[in-house]
Design a binder for these strands. Structure first.
Length: 447
RNA sequence: CGGGGUAUAGCGCAGCCCGGUAGCGCGGAAGUUUUGGGUACUUCAGGUCGCAGGUUCGAAUCCUGCUGCCCCGACCA
């Protein structure tokens, strides 16, 4: 992608409303634009990151056996009256009246709707287990939205819903998502720690929040430091092997980990002092098992083997991709800007032509871009007629993992400069070696 | 929802107290210059001063009402 033909509105100054670093950098790097309090437009660079996050989530959901659907943003109030949540949800629900005076709402979540869909088609125990997920915009009319997309009113959410015959099978479905979440966040370069959680208005009794540590995190968390070393479950784990999953979940819940709301001082003090971690964290996922809370009032039942009705056992599993974009920045930035992990970076590499209009640098840049693209990498080619300093500053700000700087000085010696954004390490390499170096790194990060 | 701010060019701000030609920096355009870490200079363009009403010969400025946005708290994925 040539920068002169792209849309990358960089801000040199920080808009005053942005308090936290991810919000500031998202505005400055041209990822988002606020359209209303807590409502944002996603600009090209931000959308790329969002899409890459979604792709990883989708892959891991499918790997764990979930099936993708897409439900509407607008729902009927009647559906929510069936579960009793229409009145219970309160002012956070955005209520809408259509031209026929029908009561509608912009969905804050989809338990009712997915239950309605499943009860309409699923009639037999043979159809279970079933896990359906979608990635769709939600709206919760927060009293006070803030921190950019970290706490917005409109937000993207991956929500999955599992349906099982009994609690034991439901627990297996819960464990599948638990394991999928560990893999999902690890693939984004994040260490997410599962912590026992309140189930809140969703209801139920088994629930975990997945928290990533970031010094600017929203809430206080306490955990055993060994969590930071645990390897994520392998890609070939058998999701049908209930015992194997139990083992993984058991390991990841064996050590102390809690948010401040669930913090138990005595249990924490039982952790060896050198293993205690008190930090700040950001919630990026939340899973619940809630049994028949919705299936009972909404009559989602199937025929069992003996012909008797069985009320479905359900769970729901959320990840906030839009919030994850901010969380990734909170976890990865420095004074110069964003530092994206390779797996979710909007582009893998930026190629800067230091002397736009020069035949030699132009030719090398074009060749580099072609070679990166042939290798399947996303490349941003800074072909603007700008000072070198401006190009360096832009590339640092938008945080691409790799920068290739092509200038007359280097070319005189047959080299280009390769800079790794993460630690600023620079190497002078022949163009072909630069390509090999970066392609190898990006491919190693995919898995 | 309680408390506190704020609204002037794309962004950051001054001007308001004390009414009288709407400014500065960044960004944008044109040019000269410079050419490996946001170069310097010149010129130019760009504003219903949040909205409505009022006071006044005259309102960005004073008064009233409304709205948006931000911060603290409560709440929360």
């Amino acid at each position: 992608m040539r920068l002169t033909r792209y849309f990358l509105p960089i801000l040199r100054e920080t808009p005053k409303e942005a308090e936290i670093v991810s919000h500031r950098l998202m505005l400055r790097a041209g990822l988002i634009r606020q359209e209303s309090a807590g409502i944002y437009a996603w600009l090209p660079l931000g959308l790329r990151v969002l899409n890459k996050i979604n792709a990883i989530i989708r892959e891991e959901q499918v790997r764990a056996g979930a099936v993708e659907v897409l439900m509407p943003t607008i729902q009927s109030a009647d559906l929510w009256r069936e579960s009793g949540r229409y009145d219970a949800y309160g002012k956070e629900m955005l209520r809408i009246v259509d031209r026929h005076d029908r009561e509608m709402l912009f969905g804050p979540t989809n338990e009712e709707m997915i239950t309605e869909i499943v009860r309409a088609y699923v009639r037999s125990y043979k159809d279970l287990p079933l896990n359906l997920f979608h990635i769709q915009w939600k709206f919760r009319d927060e009293v006070r939205p803030r921190f950019g997309v970290m706490r917005s009113r409109e937000f993207l959410m991956k929500d999955a819903y599992s349906f099982d015959l009994d609690a034991t099978a439901g627990r297996h479905s819960y464990n599948k998502m638990f394991v999928a979440y560990l893999r999902t966040f690890a693939r984004m370069g994040l260490t997410a720690i599962p912590m026992a959680a309140e189930s809140g208005p969703i209801g139920g009794n088994l629930s975990h929040e997945f928290i990533i540590l970031a010094h600017t995190g929203e809430s206080e968390v306490f955990c055993h430091k060994d969590f930071l070393q645990f390897p994520p479950p392998p890609a070939d784990i058998d999701f049908d092997d209930a015992l194997a999953l139990e083992e993984v979940v058991g390991k990841w819940t064996s050590l102390y980990a809690a948010t401040s709301e669930k913090h138990d001082e005595a249990a924490y003090n039982a952790v060896p002092e050198e293993a205690r971690v008190a930090a700040r964290g950001i919630e990026v996922g939340h899973i619940f098992y809630f049994g028949t809370k919705y299936s009972e009032p909404m009559r989602a039942v199937v025929s069992g083997r003996d012909g008797k009705e069985i009320t479905l056992s359900m769970g729901s599993y959320g990840i906030g991709p839009s919030r994850l974009v901010a969380a990734l920045i909170e976890a990865g930035h420095d004074d110069n800007g964003i530092v994206w992990p390779e797996q979710v970076a909007p582009f893998h590499v930026g190629v800067a032509d230091l002397k736009q209009g020069d035949a030699a640098t132009g030719k090398v840049c074009a060749e580099l871009v072609q070679q990166f693209e042939n290798a399947g990498l996303d490349v941003l080619h800074d072909d603007r007629d700008e000072r070198p300093g401006a190009k360096f500053a832009t590339l640092d700000l938008i945080g691409l993992p790799w920068q290739v700087v092509v200038g007359p000085k280097g070319l005189a010696e047959g080299t280009v400069e390769v800079k790794r954004r993460r630690d600023g390490a620079r190497e002078h390499l022949a163009p072909a070696d630069a390509v090999a170096r970066i392609v190898a790194s990006v491919q190693a990060a995919r898995s």
